[in-house]
Each structure stands twice: as structure tokens, then as C-alpha cells.
Design a protein around this nucleic acid. Sequence first.
DNA 1: ATGAACACTTAACAATATTTAACATTGGAA
DNA 2: TTCCAATGTTAAATATTGTTAAGTGTTCAT
Lengths: 230, 230
Amino acid sequence: MEKKVKLLLAEDDENLGLLLKEYLIAKGYETDLYPDGEAAYKGFTKNQPYNLCILDIMMPKKDGISLAKDIRQLNMDIPIIFLTAKNMKEDVLEGFKIGADDYITKPFSMEELIFRIEAIMRRVSQDANSHEDAIYKLGIYTFDSRKQILSGGEEEVKLTTKEAELLSLLCNNANKVLERNFALRTIWIDDNYFNARSMDVYITKLRKHLKDDPKVEIINVHGKGYKLIV
Amino acid sequence: MEKKVKLLLAEDDENLGLLLKEYLIAKGYETDLYPDGEAAYKGFTKNQPYNLCILDIMMPKKDGISLAKDIRQLNMDIPIIFLTAKNMKEDVLEGFKIGADDYITKPFSMEELIFRIEAIMRRVSQDANSHEDAIYKLGIYTFDSRKQILSGGEEEVKLTTKEAELLSLLCNNANKVLERNFALRTIWIDDNYFNARSMDVYITKLRKHLKDDPKVEIINVHGKGYKLIV
DNA sequence: ATGAACACTTAACAATATTTAACATTGGAA
DNA sequence: TTCCAATGTTAAATATTGTTAAGTGTTCAT
């Protein structure tokens, strides 16, 4: 569900910028820092794709508002958080017109920034994932990932959340190798030993659910991961 | 013709205050911002009538609590929302004694604040103008969130406040995961154990209300929250 | 004031989901 | 082959959620 989140950070105050970058990285966000609006724009085009932009409004070369407009030209949907240092009524109004997702005023606490980032990422990641909501045909089975239901022949099984998430990943990578660590990071977030064993347990469960059609099979690729054969 | 909802906003942090004001205006609420308790009190007497007050607790000249007391002297019924830092539960309890309707802890998302305002306006006046679609179609059911009425087929059920608030949130996030903590923060304010159990009870109630249409379903996403399937 | 009606919370217990543990099996490198 | 790490499988332990009912407070008409 959660891939690595990549942030674009545009902040001209070098001290604050580096501090933020360091903190965000420590919190698990891949973060690129740019010292002004132009650099940020270039960085945005070159180092795509970013998941979220954090833009200071007061910046040299190109201010945050117009930077946001330019970014939105390239990507309608990318969430933007503005950092505002001053009493900037008109700019703020302007900002709402271009669809900023949230604002945060200096001085702010790191906790607050993280909170907002998480809130926004939750929203958009769910929007994005709703595209993955799909219906898969697996031999005699039909898997509705949105409802988490696996129907085959006459029976209809309600899968648990973890079962459904894992089967979704397998379906997305049907006939290709689904890497263990990728699956662990997306579903379990952490790829430690215990979660890995937990995943093994769920592979067993899925195999039982799919046992009625010999054409459908989850095979192990030793040391790499699993492959769903259809 | 809907009448405009008029808000009094008392917040000494100028940046936060202006941002909130602009955001609320963008959301269709007429909003006056005052930088301290005394100014807010004067503004309240001069620019009547307000429909709702949003008061920061920590303010110079006159803090939010005593401001609220004074405002209540003039108007017994006006709804008040306090803005408070996390570690100020005693003050908040004090606040409830004088009849605060709600409080919200910083940091909060704009989304949460809007939901609170709407919830209160719903409670206070049935014809409050809400920028949101107040009517949802759920399979055979129709849910009017303003009137808190769920009608399906021939039956018509009057939902309780909590039922309606929870169903509203679910509808806003239809086919996506509504996170437990988000729902708890927005509806129950605190996301402690007991409130979480209370929410589970309400999920059961909603499921019963929606049981006549198998196409409509509230499924649990283990460890994350609930998803309304339509 | 009194109490019935209602909304909400808390408690108690049931049912599921997930993780951890334990032991069996397999695959591949030394 | 031999041995170790990776995987398979089952069951116990733990955590989360489902459900019902009792408890608590509020409202409102009498």
C-alpha cells in the first residue's frame, strides 16, 4: 500500500531547508531539496515522479505560488503544501485558486508537518489505489479486490485484508516474479524476519483457497519471491 | 436562498489566523478574524449576529475560556469551538463547563475543522448551508446527512447524530478506506480505547440499517479502518 | 420534580485476523 | 553428500473487531 514517498522540498533558507530535509529523510521520506523556485522546477521535471511538493512561498527567482502553477501545468493532481512565513493574504487567496492541499505557517513543529504530510498521503494514496481496485480472472476463480471476495464455481469466500492485499499484488504481477521484499514493504511496511514468516503463512492460506483449480498456482522462486501462474 | 453562515474567529497567531480565515472563506463561510480576546469581544458585540465562534484558548489580553464566558453572557446558544494544544485537557474540560460545543487539538487538518463546523451547523439549524452534497445514494438507500434520514424502499429511518456523522464520513470516503483514527478524531475528538469501542458499536448499528441491500456493505480493513462499498 | 424515551458509553463475551512459535521439508552452495 | 538457509505447514498466542445488553446521562412531557 505504501511505496516510498518522494518529496520535493523548495526552501531558500539553507538552515531550515537542510534541517527539514534531514528530518523528513529520517522519517522515511525520500526528499530532494532545492534552494529556489527555478531550481525546484527544473528538479521537478528531471527527477520525476514526486508524490508531494512542499513549497516555501517566499523564494528567490520564482516564488512558491507561481512555481505551484507551473508544477500544476505538468501534473494536475500532485498535492502541494505551502510554507508561509509572512502575513500574505492575497498570495494565500491566490494559492487556494490553484488548489493547494494544505498550508503550514512558520514557525511550525516537525510533528505538525509530518501530520499534514501523512494526512495528505493517506488521501491521495487511497485515490491512487482505487485504480488498482479491479476484478481479476484466475482460472475458475474470480477475485474482486475491492470487495475482497474470491468466488470460484459455486463457493464464495470472503478474504481477510491481508489475504486480499497479497493476492492483489500477485495478480498485478501475474506470471512475473513478485519479490518478497517488495511485497513485504508494500503490505507489511517492514520487511523484518517475523513479517516475512507471516507472509509465508499467508501464501499457504492463498494456496488453499486456490487449490480447486490446478491451472492456478503460486510457485516459489527461491530467494526471490513468488510467481502467480495462470 | 441560503443564508450565509457567519463565523467569528479569534486567533492570535497571525499567520495561522489569516490562513484559517482565507480557507473558511474559500469554503463559503463569512469569516471575521480578531487577533486577541478583547478585540474579539468588541467585534462580537458590534458585528452581530454570528452563527459560530472559533476561539483559540491561548490568546493575549483575554484567553479563549473567559472570552467564551463573556460571549455566553450575551448569547446563551451560540456554538463555540475551541482550538487547543494537545496537552491542555484540563483547560478544555473547564471549557466544556461553560458549554463549549466542541474542541479540536492542534495540529489539525482543514478537513477536520470543516467537518466539525458542518456537524455543529447541522445540529443547530437544519437548513444550514453546507457546501457539500448532503444527499447520498447508497444502492436502494438514500441518505440525507442534513436531516439525518436514511430512506430505503418504503422504510424511513431517523438516524442518531453519531450514526449520521459516521455514515457521512463513510460516504465522503466511499470505496476508500476511512481510517479509524481519522474518524475518531473528527467525530469523537479523542481516539482513546473506549471511543474506539463505541465506534465499533456504531458500525454494527449502521450495518443493521443497511442490511437490506447486499450491494451496500461496510467492510473492515484490519488495523486500518472501514470501507464503504457501493 | 418524575419518569419514560432516547442517545451514547461501557462492559462482557464471541468471533476473526494476524503474528509468533514449532517443527517439517526443500533447494542450493560448499 | 552435507549442511544451512529458505520455505511449507500447522497450531498456539495475541490483537482486533463484532455483537448484544446493561449502565449512564439527557431531554422532554406530564
